[in-house]
Write a protein that binds this DNA or RNA. Structure first.
Lengths: 339, 339
DNA sequence: GACTGGCACTCGCTACAGTCGAGTGCCAGA
DNA sequence: TCTGGCACTCGACTGTAGCGAGTGCCAGTC
C-alpha cells in the first residue's frame, strides 16, 4: 500500500518527537504538537497502517509508537531536510581547527570537535597511507646494523620503522641508499610503490644489495601490505547520555567494538565523498546493531584521503548530525589543502 | 585501639570475599569460608570494632559488611602478599610483546595486554620526551618557506612539526641548518636543550639566522615547554563488568576523565620506579573517586622514561593487579633496552 | 469515502501491605 | 575471652489494586 502525504507527515512527526523526548509518542500528543489538521482518531488509523508496513512499532500494547530502523531509514531518505549549521557552529568549527601544529593535532582537534558538536562518539581516520604520496624518506642509523626509516607523506603523515640489517653499513652507504630510495619513490603513490621498490632492489650496487632487500621488505610489509591505517576516537562518554535507555541497557558490546581499529575503519573508511548513514540493523557489525553511524569521506579538494563520522543511538538527530559531519569534513579538507 | 591479629585476619577475609563475590559479607559466611577458628558471634564483635575504626561499613542495617577505602588501604599496605604471576601469564606477556615493529606498536601491544591480563582499563604513557635524548633531527623542505622538522629520540619516539619560515630557503641552506642543529642537539636530553637552542641561534650565519629563530621557536615551544606527552588507553569495555554496581551506577564521569590526556598523565606519569596504589577517595581527580589506580614507572634499566597502570573499581584484586602491572612494566623496560 | 467522537479495553506504572530471611547487637553463661 | 541464643532490623520480593495513557473499533457526520 502506498503511503499518502499525511501518513508520511505522521511518520516524520513521530520521528521528530521521539528523538526529542525519547518517549513513545501517542496520537493525542502528536496532534497537539504538530499542525496535522486532523483528529487523534485519524492519526491512529494512519499509525496502524504505518505499523503494518513496519515503519513504527509499539513497545507494549498500551504504549505509544516508536520508529523502527525502517522508519528512520524512510525518514532519512525522504522526509528530512538538511539543517544548515548555525553561524555559531561554523565559527566554533573554524576556531577549533585553526592553529593545529601538525597532522596529529588536526586529527585530534577534529575528533574532539565532532564529538562535542554532535554530542556523540566521533571517529576520524588518519589520511590513508594507500592514498598518500611519498614526500621524503629519511634513513637514520641507530647502530651499524640498524636503520630507522622515516617516511613522510604528502598528507603530513609520518611513519617510522626500524630495519635490522644483515651486515654492517657505514655512513657513506647510508647516504647512497637514502639518495637512491628517495629518487625512486618520492612523489609516487604508496599503493603504486611495489614495482618501484622491486626496481630499487634490482638496481642497487652489490655491496648495498643486502641492505636494500632488508629495507624494501620493511617498506612493503609494514606500509603497503598491511596498510597502516589509524583512527582517533572521542566522545565515548556521550554513550551514557539517555541513561542506558538507548543501546538496550548495555554499553559493553559497543565499547568493545570501539576498541577495535579494524571495526572503526570498516565503519568510516570511506572511499567516496558521499555521506553514508547506517541505521541499526543495517550495520554489518553485530555489536553495533543498536546504533546508527553517519560517515563521510574527506580530503583536500575532490580527492578523498580518509573518512570520519559519528556513532550514536538509532534515535539520533539525523538532519543535524549529517549536516555537522559534512561541515566538519569540508573544513578538515580545507585545512589539509592548505598544507 | 590497636587491632589484634585476628581482627586483621577478619578484615583480610572480608576484603577477599567481597572482591570475589561483590556482595556484602556477613559473619556467618565468613567463618564458613575461612579457617578463623572462632564463631560468628566473635567475628561480629571484631566487625563492630573494625567498623568503628572506619575500615568497613554496612550498606544498610541488615546487610553484611563492605570494606571502606581505608580498609582497602590497610589491606594493601599490611595484609596482602604479592601474588607471583603464573607461568602461563609470563608466557602470555612475552608472546604478546615480542615482534613489535616500532614504538607505537610496543605501546599499543602493551596497553592491550595490560587491559586483557587485569581485565581493567589500562593506560600506558609513551616514553616521555623530557626524559629522552635527541638521536637525530631531520629537516625536510615542504616548500621554499616551509620546513618539516622530524625529531627522533633515543626511546624510539618520533615527533614532527611544520615550521613556517619568514623567508625562502634553498637546498644548501637546509643542509647547513640540518648539520648545525644535529651537531648542537644530538645526544643531549630534551629537557636540557633550551640553552643549546639559544646557542644555535646566536652562532648561526646571518643569512640563516631568521630561519634558525623560526626553527628554534618551534623546537622550544612544542617540544620542551608544553612537553608533548602522549598516552594510550585500552579496555574501557571492562568498566562495564560488574554490571554498574561498581562506580555507583554511572560510567559517565569516568569515561569523561579518561578522555583527558592531562588527567591520564597525572594518574600514571610516574617519575619513580615505585608502584603507587591510589584507592578511591585518595584520588585527586573528583571524577575518579570511585575507582582505584595502580601505576608504576617503566624504562630501560633503572632509569624511568614513562608510566603505566590500570584503573578499576575500588573493589579490585589488588595483589594480582599489582603483580601484573609490575611484571608488564619490567618486560616493557626490557623491550626498550633492546632497541 | 474520509474523517470524527465516543467507548470499551489493554497493560505498564506506582503505591501499599505482607512475608521472608540474612544479618546484626546484646546478653548470659561457659 | 569466647560462644550460643534471642530479639530486632530492614532490604528484597510478592501480590493486589487503582490509575491513566494509549489503543482499536464502530457508528455517525460532512
Amino acid at each position: 500500500m502506498a503511503l499518502d502525504d499525511r501518513k508520511l507527515d505522521v511518520l516524520r512527526a513521530i520521528v521528530e518527537d521521539y528523538v526529542a523526548t525519547q518517549e513513545p509518542v501517542g496520537s493525542k500528543s502528536l496532534v497537539e504538537r504538530h499542525q496535522l489538521g486532523v483528529s487523534p482518531a485519524t492519526v491512529r488509523n494512519d499509525m496502524a497502517v504505518l505499523e503494518e508496513e513496519g515503519y513504527i512499532r509499539q513497545p507494549h500494547t498500551s504504549a505509544g509508537r516508536v520508529p523502527t530502523d525502517r522508519g528512520y531509514r524512510l525518514f532519512v531518505d525522504r522526509l528530512s531536510t538538511v539543517k544548515p549549521l548555525s553561524p555559531a557552529e561554523r565559527r566554533a568549527i573554524e576556531r577549533f581547527l585553526v592553529g593545529a601544529v601538525d597532522l596529529d593535532d588536526v586529527v585530534h582537534r577534529t575528533v574532539r570537535l565532532l564529538a562535542q558538536l554532535t554530542r556523540q562518539v566521533a571517529v576520524v581516520q588518519y589520511p590513508s597511507l594507500a592514498r598518500s604520496t611519498v614526500r621524503h624518506l629519511e634513513l637514520v642509523p641507530i647502530s651499524t646494523t640498524r636503520l630507522m626509516v622515516v617516511m613522510i607523506a604528502n598528507t603530513g603523515r609520518v611513519e617510522q620503522r626500524v630495519v635490522d640489517l644483515p651486515a654492517p653499513i657505514d655512513e657513506a652507504q647510508v647516504t647512497t641508499l637514502r639518495r637512491l630510495t628517495n629518487e625512486k619513490l618520492c612523489g609516487s603513490k604508496l599503493a603504486d610503490t611495489p614495482p618501484l621498490v622491486q626496481a630499487l632492489v634490482d638496481e642497487s650496487a652489490p655491496e648495498l644489495s643486502a641492505a636494500t632487500v632488508a629495507l624494501s621488505t620493511v617498506l612493503l610489509e609494514t606500509l603497503v601490505e598491511r596498510h597502516e591505517e589509524r583512527v582517533a576516537l572521542a566522545g565515548t562518554a556521550n554513550l551514557t547520555r539517555g541513561g542506558l535507555l538507548d543501546f538496550q541497557g548495555s554499553l559493553r558490546p559497543i565499547l568493545e567494538a570501539l576498541e577495535e581499529e579494524v571495526i572503526l575503519l570498516k565503519l568510516i573508511g570511506e572511499v567516496e565523498p558521499i555521506t553514508r548513514v547506517r541505521i541499526g540493523d543495517e550495520n554489518e557489525i553485530d555489536n553495533l546493531r543498536s546504533t546508527s553511524i553517519v560517515s563521510t569521506g574527506y580530503g583536500p579538494g575532490v580527492t578523498i584521503v580518509g573518512g570520519l563520522g559519528v556513532l550514536g543511538p538509532t534515535r539520533m538527530d539525523y538532519p543535524g548530525t549529517i549536516a555537522t559531519v559534512r561541515a566538519v569534513a569540508r573544513y578538515v579538507g580545507e585545512m589539509l589543502a592548505q598544507n
